[in-house]
Nucleic acid binder design. Structure first.
Lengths: 342, 342
DNA sequence: GTGAAAGCGCTAACAG
DNA sequence: CTGTTAGCGCTTTCAC
């Protein structure tokens, strides 16, 4: 019952045709008599024939496989990116080989090697190390994705417009009457940190900005917020976290100390993950176009595979989701109390 | 610069060996002189040679590719499953072809066809339709995953132990002094609904249980909870939702009406997604072993591929995560107030 | 219109 | 130990 899959040869002999005629009939390339076409189709159906893509690849050099290497498929942000890529890939009749690098360059290198061995037509990578760029030099069509994407000039890349998104958050805080916010940012080692901080400084100048470093996790954000709260402070504390998970951690830190958000401190996140909708108050955040990022990356990769000239880096804008974790210091006090319970 | 990838032939001629000797040297199969091995390795390195897995597959019949077809990679639960599968696949040196079916049987069928064409060694599927079972009859090693997995006897399957998990939740509610809870469950069309309801009835008997149907989304849970709240009620309402997203929606419904959780109503979820940790109060829930499910599925698939006899369905136990959305009606009132603020 | 034959890159006999 | 040879399943000239 577990017998060999039928091959074109089987289809051809059942249909009483030669391999080549059967091939032409099924693929629709080349002239075939109507009834030959019909018999080939019938035979294929009867046998449950499915062409062997590996064999096709060997002749055509096109595997119809593309790779996706992201830090962590279980991270809500990256899962959204993957979904966007997935959907777009299906449209283009491409299959997606997915890998998680866990931010480790050795895992990344290993996955990249697997992609080359599988002879994928191209790959989308959120680069940890520069091994990705090396691959491109070797001829694999590549699209970089995420905030670290800009680090390799000349390679097609797609990411959130960090400058615009950070500006959006900062301006919102400003309109709400907040001064310079404190920052909770990622580890020094990540390109994303540099980008975020640079964007803030671009807007606010290089004046001293209170900054805590965490590791993009809830626990990290919680601890960082604790440190921020330990310091003496004379006015309302506003915090802009470099991702939602850390912002949510900060909210837990507030809760731990019996402090109220946004009355005692305001929190602004960055990412737009679903979890932010359920906290109390809901997390106000600058959302990134995660799904669109994935979809766009696939579209660009298809271009690159087809040899069209690579566009320069594409930056997709973020948008603000206002939910209640930022106090409105600009509103008259009376109004503020009334608005607090909505 | 975008030149042809080097082949074994290139390596062999650079090393001054025949193709077969080079092959033996690089793969380590068969006797090769030490210096021949060395020269082959050097040539491979110099050329950046990576074996063509497609060609290898054609000879060996092993693609080292496996498929994963799940409803939605962006759903936190399934993203965790995918991550578990991913990690385990890497360990087994297998690459994962990922697809989302979006609970649509036509998409599922399409993905399955893509998997056959790619000649994957096997596939893990959360079946929407019975096309998956048909594939197995045709000789593709298959492992079913998730609550709908049990629907195809004879196929290896791995899923959460629904009976045990539901019992865990029900017993917890009981210990906390709650009577029969109301249920928010999924649509009739999903096997998961039947399973969940059956498990509840198995524990509670077939007495009338208040049940609302939603679609596993936050909005659906929110609306369902609204309907539950619209009905006259003489005692504390406890709700057991069939997934966390709906439970979180129910919590929003409570908030919308200015009701307190858990003082006015208790909520128990099912899944254990990360978002439940950030709500206020945190969502008490029965967690499913999502990552382990994915890992185990890959392990079982490897067994199946290697022709080992398929184990019967594997059910992994869930566990309770207690966070605060369930009132303790069994505790003395004084204690209850004191405990309420933790 | 159709068939025969070559070859994509690799491995597994089989001789040397 | 090493080289030669024959395919894996398919497409694609090239004759007929």
């Amino acid at each position: 019952m577990n017998r060999r899959r039928p091959t074109l040869h089987d289809v051809a002999s059942l249909a009483g045709l030669s391999k080549s005629t059967a091939a032409r009939a099924l693929s629709g390339n080349g002239p075939v008599a109507a009834k030959a076409r019909q018999r080939a189709a019938a035979a294929a159906l009867e046998l449950g024939y499915e062409p062997n893509q590996q064999a096709i690849s060997m002749r055509s050099g096109q595997s119809r496989l593309i790779g996706l290497v992201i830090p962590d498929i279980a991270n809500p942000f990256w899962a959204e990116v993957a979904k966007g890529a997935q959907d777009r890939a299906v449209e283009a009749d491409l299959s997606l080989l997915c890998f998680s690098s866990d931010w480790q360059s050795d895992r990344e290198a290993r996955h990249l090697r697997a992609l080359v061995r599988a002879r994928v037509d191209g790959a989308i990578v959120n680069p940890v190390a520069d091994s990705a760029a090396a691959l491109h030099a070797f001829g694999l069509p590549l699209v970089l994705i995420g905030s670290s994407a800009g680090g390799f000039p000349g390679l097609p890349a797609v990411g959130t417009d960090i400058a615009q998104s950070v500006r959006l958050g900062l301006d919102f805080l400003n309109r709400r009457g907040h001064g310079t916010p404190a920052l909770i940012v990622g580890p020094f080692s990540r390109i994303a940190r540099t980008r975020f901080v640079a964007a803030v400084q671009e807007r606010l100048g290089t004046e001293a900005i209170e900054t805590e470093t965490a590791d993009y996790t809830v626990e990290g954000g919680q601890a960082a917020m604790g440190r921020l709260l330990d310091r003496p402070r004379r006015s309302h504390l506003a915090v802009f976290a470099a991702n939602d998970l850390m912002a949510l951690g900060a909210m837990l830190a507030l809760r731990d100390r019996g402090l109220d958000c946004p009355d005692d401190a305001s929190l602004l996140g960055f990412d737009g993950i679903g979890a932010g909708a359920f906290s109390s108050p809901g997390l106000t955040t600058v959302a990134k176009p995660a799904r669109a990022l994935g979809a766009r990356a696939v579209a660009m990769l298809v271009e690159a595979i087809e040899g069209r000239p690579a566009e320069g880096p594409v930056h997709l804008p973020g948008w603000l989701i206002e939910r209640g974790s930022v106090a409105d210091l600009a509103a008259p006090a009376a109004l503020r109390v009334a608005g607090g319970s909505r």
